[in-house]
């Protein structure tokens, strides 16, 4: 937290900005989680189902952190530190999705198998499974990025469209579900996620076509 004041003393305004940005992020992520934790539906679910549901909500929250890190919008995290945090958050996102799918599989195997086979009656299942495959592919590509010697431009051309699709599919998945998430907090988180992702993608694009 004090690294940014290493070179030059932190101004009062900068300190305020830092607290404001981090405070806002904590609230933006804590409210949907808190509302979900208060859902009456939890009373009628066994622990593995609750874990599965919350892993999905955490995944959606982690998705919002990614573009903020890419934008350098989180004070104290910039440059190499932000890149490392983006990578770590990416790993956490993959873990959250794997946990989401595994726990829901244990909760109701036929429903999860239908979803994975694109044979579920619910559109949100299809959207969710498509988003899952895209996240896994994006993670795999990130791990292989060096070995494949992907140029920054090449990487952008693969990563940015994937990100847009993942965010769109995930928001569709979440919004169509009647679950523990509150309607308004879900919409707010989704709106912020879309805005942050599109801003980050926009800023990552070169000014002129190359």
């Amino acid at each position: 937290m004090w690294t940014s004041s290493f070179n030059r003393p932190e101004t009062r305004a900068a300190r305020h900005r830092k607290w404001l940005a981090w405070g806002a992020l904590v609230i933006v992520l804590a409210v949907p989680l808190g509302v979900a934790a208060a859902s009456p539906l939890l009373a009628w679910r066994q622990p593995i189902y609750i874990i599965g549901g919350f892993a999905g909500i955490v995944g959606l929250c982690l998705m919002l952190v990614q573009p903020l890190l890419a934008l350098g919008a989180l004070p104290g995290l910039s440059g190499a530190t932000a890149r490392r945090a983006h990578r770590v958050t990416g790993h956490a996102l993959v873990a959250a999705i794997v946990l989401h799918v595994a726990a829901l599989w244990i909760t109701s195997p036929p429903d999860m198998l239908d979803a994975l086979a694109f044979a579920a009656p619910t559109l949100f299942s299809t959207l969710g499974v498509m988003a899952m495959w895209l996240v896994l592919a994006t993670g795999a590509l990130a791990l292989l990025r060096k070995r494949l010697r992907l140029s920054p431009r090449r990487w952008r051309r693969l990563h940015l469209p994937a990100v847009v699709a993942i965010v769109g599919l995930s928001v569709g998945h979440a919004v169509l579900i009647q679950g523990t998430m509150g309607w308004w907090s879900k919409l707010a988180l989704s709106g912020l996620l879309i805005a942050a992702a599109l801003t980050a993608v926009w800023r990552s694009l070169p000014r002129s076509p190359r």
Binding site: R45, L104, I177, Q178
Partner: peptide, 8 residues
């Protein structure tokens, strides 16, 4: 009946 797997 309560919502499960996304739908009631």
């Amino acid at each position: 009946i309560v919502p499960a797997f996304g739908q009631a």
